[in-house]
Design a protein around this nucleic acid. Structure first.
Length: 266
DNA sequence: CTGCGCACCTGAATGC
DNA sequence: TGCATTCAGGTGCGCA
């Protein structure tokens, strides 16, 4: 990298040294590899450190001409003259530099070390995750969103996986069988894989791929965002309720709510 | 340890 | 018409 410009300091808020330190340490480095775990990705650098990137809600890493948008947060010039831009409208994304560590036989940057493997990781061990889930007396959806249990699953794909497995997200994981928990994890892997092949989930023009194209997976969503519409499996009206300051969508017939009083009763 | 509520941010959608 | 409010998402923090 021959030049680095941080246009918006918020984009490096998670980097300890701030914009000046990040810039100084990036210049002169070469990219020696790439990696990803859950919602984090990273570029391995020639000095052994890693540039860790989280795209947040709307972040993009773009190679080629700097786009004409107000949302370019960081601009880099690579050695061959190609610009690399970090574009992020909603500014939940960030860059940081970190050292690599070896965890469970895999080298990952330090800020990623606490994350569990994601369902698309070749080393993902579903049975081990089922054990973790069964060991916690907490709601299954809460655990699906806990990146230290299984990474890469957000609110939308959690709802989709639970719908496929016909499990209500408010069920306490300890009350579910190994088979049911395994079904939820398998469904999550399926949903993520299908979404990936369709270019992700786009609700509006913000969510586009590196070529500026929308993903099509939102058209394939079975339950998320379908409040008041018929369940695609049984026709019952899909419900929505508040959960962890987010929305949960579910079919009350296919995914019956737990009876236990510990759940969030209305 | 676990849960809970909130801040962070922007722009689209909705309300008055 | 215009201003105010609500909402969505992932992460991480302080506090119970």
């Amino acid at each position: 990298m021959t030049a680095v410009r941080v246009h918006h300091p918020r984009a490096v808020r998670r980097h300890d040294g701030g914009p000046a330190d990040l810039t100084a340490r990036l210049i002169g480095q070469r990219v020696s590899g790439t990696g990803r775990r859950g919602k984090y990705l990273w570029l391995e650098l020639s000095d052994g450190s890693a540039l860790v990137v989280h795209l947040g809600m709307s972040g993009q890493m773009l190679l080629g001409p700097v786009p004409k948008t107000d949302h370019v947060r960081i601009a880099v010039l690579l050695d061959d003259g190609t610009p690399l831009s970090f574009v992020d409208q909603r500014t939940f994304g960030s860059w940081m530099l970190a050292d690599m560590l070896t965890v469970d036989g895999t080298a990952v940057p330090q800020p990623v070390a606490h994350l569990a493997r994601d369902p698309l990781d070749p080393c993902f061990d579903a049975d081990a995750v089922v054990k973790v889930l069964r060991g916690k007396h907490s709601e299954i959806k809460r655990q699906l969103l806990d990146q230290t249990v299984v990474s890469g699953i957000g609110n939308i794909y959690a709802d989709e996986a639970l719908w496929r497995a016909q499990i209500n997200g408010a069920r306490i994981a300890t009350s579910l069988t190994r088979k049911q928990l395994r079904a939820v994890l398998d469904a999550a892997a399926e949903v993520m894989s299908e979404a990936l092949h369709q270019g992700g989930t786009s609700f509006d023009s913000l969510y586009v791929n590196v070529n500026g194209e929308s993903g099509y997976f939102d058209r394939a969503l079975d339950v998320y965002g379908r409040e008041g519409q018929a369940c695609r499996r049984c026709g019952t009206v899909v419900r929505r309720e508040k959960f962890m300051n987010r929305s949960s969508f579910y079919c009350p017939a296919c995914q019956p709510r737990p009876r236990s009083p510990r759940s969030r009763a209305q």
